[in-house]
Nucleic acid binder design. Structure first.
Lengths: 343, 343
DNA sequence: GTTAGCACTCAACGAAATAGAGTGCTAACA
DNA sequence: TGTTAGCACTCTATTTCGTTGAGTGCTAAC
């Protein structure tokens, strides 16, 4: 028994239908569709075959069939057409993004909102990883009693702050001097090499400040990698509109899983290695997401991949549309973050 | 007919019971309690009176009674005892807050999490309003092509960044000079008076930079007030545990209302005027929150009120505990943000 | 003023009946 | 050999209806 063209066609029709209706698809519904001039009985035979092959499942004897994860995988890999964005959708996205966004955090928030608004699924995005950025400026500003605020600014215009301890013997003037020397010497140094460079280059001139520089490096390194709490989430409640989540307990499970950002953080971190990824139902490592599909993409600054973002929805997701939206958004983001109009 | 001591006692017993059980309280349940040596029939008579007075409601004829908003108001104003925090609760809060929190945003996040974890309700917090802070440092860092990153640092150690346009004729050296002059002259100026001061004081020395300074002031003012998207939220899904929200639609309504932060922002902004506030059910202006109670408090830096935070829960909320938790948290936050150990 | 007693109400629960969608199989057909 | 009509069968979802039990309101007696 083989997956011939007709079986494929029927499977595609079933998946398309199920994505819309969310309820098991019967043989009659398919046989009535244009294109197949087959009776429901014939479709039934084919459906039985497809079930045996693992592409369809039957919730119970007298129900229609629903696609399995395996079917979605086939669908995504071979059968699906991308759905171009409508003008309205593009407008909606632009409306979220064109407002003057001068903070990255705002860009992240707006992106997540745009994604969830346009797809009606749940959107998530991880802020940029700054490892590949280059240093532009370091400034130490004294606060009260042995503390200073260190501000580090990168080539792409990101700023990171941290409060650090300052040994008593370092005064305001000295902080200023250290700032100036570091800014001068480390200009254009990759952020993830800052540690080595500070330690190597500056042995001479700032030798007696070794310990202090060490604590600065530590603070910088800590701030460059985004953390779980920095993951932006939007539209988690969208899931409640889907019949899959009409059961309060399922909804609770899902919402609890995404509310603590750790799950999403892991997801996005792994996803940042691939330009694009689709994970369907059981393919997810996280048990909480066994009924969900996750589609992710990445954005860049210049040529350098900076972070990832994505959509979580029911396995019965409108993949074609989601993929198009993410591709579009990836271009938008890369453009926004790369252009000079952005922080 | 009057609210005598016995009626008050019975009302309190009913409210206490209902807060625990969430289901209508019958006369027998009260008459069996120690303290009242009254038969259920007597209680029934009193309950009928209390209903007539507007303190109790009956979902249907043969059900027990539930407290009205008016009853909760009376309860909160006159009858309730504060519930001291248990050691475990204090530990839980400290566990969230003692981790080295060097960014305000992290403090906000952790506070919200601690509040929702310890109360099992939904917590929200608004980041500090910096109007009353004083300027500590201004730094302009050139980015590419006519842009600079402006970093403003305040006395309490907060930093705000904004990308601003720089006229072509202003070079790197000039940016440095402007930074230095502004930092010197405006040192310790209240953030909300920065605009006037810049414009008045510096007419002479930086006269030809008037337009540029103007755009700086504008950017600063924009960044000092927290925005709706900055409101931190935690534990929204906690509400799903309560029988009040076992209906998916109610849950959806609530979650949608809090997901868009605007509602909460309005709530907290209004709340920041009062040191403490309790709003019960229908007292809420927002229709979405007619079934909820909102309890808010404020935190300070030094003597200056900085922002507000609060709890949203069902009207059947454990007010005594929530109030204690918020009072405790208010002290914690004020201490954290005031002490030198904080950004 | 308090209480026992009783008839009454109403939501909640569960069993039984019904409807309807859909299947699998068989036999006939092209 | 693939396709189709027909039919018995299965199983869920929905409705109906009786039952249960918590709780009330009222009355009459204490």
């Amino acid at each position: 028994m083989d997956l011939d063209a007709r079986k494929l066609g029927i499977l595609k029709a079933i998946i398309d239908e199920y994505i819309l209706s969310a309820s098991p698809v019967g043989s009659r519904a398919i046989s009535k569709q244009d294109g197949f001039n087959l009776s429901s009985a014939t479709i039934r035979n084919e459906m039985a075959d497809l079930e045996e092959l693992g592409y369809l499942e039957q919730p119970h004897t007298s129900a229609g069939r629903i696609p399995s994860d395996k079917a979605y995988r086939l669908y995504v890999d071979q059968m699906m057409q991308k759905a171009a964005l409508t003008d309205d959708e593009i407008k909606l996205i632009r409306a979220h993004l064109t407002a003057k966004l001068d903070e990255v955090e705002m860009v992240m928030k707006q992106t997540a909102q745009a994604l969830s608004a346009v797809t009606h699924y749940t959107a998530m995005i991880m802020p940029p990883m700054l490892a590949a950025n280059r240093l532009r400026h370091i400034q130490l500003v004294p606060l009260r009693e042995g503390r200073a605020l260190m501000v580090v600014i990168t080539s792409a215009g990101f700023a990171r702050e941290a409060v650090i301890r300052v040994p008593d013997e370092i005064g305001t003037g000295e902080l200023e001097r250290i700032s100036r020397i570091l800014t001068e010497r480390l200009h254009d140094c990759r952020m993830d090499q800052l540690g080595e460079r500070i330690m190597q280059d500056l042995g001479g001139e700032l030798f007696e400040r070794r310990a202090f520089l060490n604590s600065m490096v530590e603070a910088i390194e800590h701030k460059m990698e985004p953390d779980a709490p920095n993951v932006q989430l939007s539209g988690a409640t969208n899931m409640l509109h889907f019949p899959e989540y009409s059961d309060v307990n399922k909804a609770k499970m899902f919402l609890t899983a995404v509310e603590g950002r750790n799950t999403l953080y892991e997801l996005l971190k792994r996803a940042s290695r691939l330009e694009f990824s689709i994970t369907i139902g059981g393919e997810n490592e996280n048990d909480m997401l066994k009924d969900c599909s996750v589609v992710t993409a990445t954005y860049q600054i210049g040529e350098e991949p900076m972070g990832s973002f994505g959509i979580i929805g029911p396995t019965r997701m409108h993949y074609g549309k989601v993929i198009s939206v993410l591709e579009f958004m990836s271009r938008c983001l890369t453009e926004m973050l790369t252009s000079d109009d952005e922080e």
